[in-house]
Design a protein around this nucleic acid. Structure first.
Lengths: 114, 114
DNA sequence: TGGTTACTAAGCCATATGACTAACCATTCC
DNA sequence: GGAATGGTTAGTCATATGGCTTAGTAACCA
């Protein structure tokens, strides 16, 4: 449906970096603080914080300040929209709308529960 | 499975631009020459060619020189891999592997036919 | 052969990105 | 209160990106 260019831009841009994808993967097992997220990486904190902001602006994660720590958590919605764009494209160029239908059912399921 | 960082980097990067997504959408209805793809845009040819190269390096399209024209066509494989990464993430953070299973079945279907 | 068409190459420019350091809040703990 | 912890701001730097122009080269057409 909607082809929110700017939103998709930021989402895909956010995904186009291994550090940020690793952060997302890490957040898959639950929310975490910034310093917790920084642990596996060798980079300086401000650098990592920048990545976190990119993810946030891409709508992929949400953050909240709790005391002196900032907690980061996934926001499935944007990912679902991103995935939806891909699925739509794929369905189009595979010339089989039935596959899209199947996918959209999955999406609907997931949305209903969120 | 595989988490080809560099490949995903380039694929997502290629998708992070509305011009390039428009090109992909256009190619959804069949292969086209560079100048054909350029028609809807106001930008100069070299600029558009650059976008095409980004798409090609991201594995999303393939091109072939035919006489003096270059024909561009979609390459569903990379998109499927990209979509797969997203689906895997979503499945993980939704804590429901059954949904991933359903998705992988779809993928398998599509691959069998390609 | 000579012109037009379709792409390519080279180089320039402005802005964005990803990294760093150093310094600065704002909690929390002793 | 003073120190440690967790994050943030500001500023620098190198490279990448996305746009342009100008000038080619390689088919095809008359």
């Amino acid at each position: 449906m909607t082809n929110h260019s700017a939103t998709l831009d930021r989402a895909f841009q956010a995904l186009a970096d291994p550090t940020r994808r690793a952060i997302l993967a890490r957040l898959g097992s639950g929310p975490a603080s910034v310093s917790r997220l920084a642990e596996p990486f060798t980079m300086a904190m401000p650098t990592l914080l920048q990545h976190i902001r990119v993810l946030e602006q891409g709508g992929l994660i949400g953050t909240e300040k709790v005391g002196r720590t900032r907690i980061c958590a996934l926001r499935p919605d944007a990912l679902r929209e991103t995935e939806g764009w891909l699925a739509r494209q794929r369905a189009a160029w595979e010339g089989r709308l039935d596959r899209l239908d199947a996918y959209l059912l999955t999406m609907k399921d997931a949305t209903d529960e969120s």
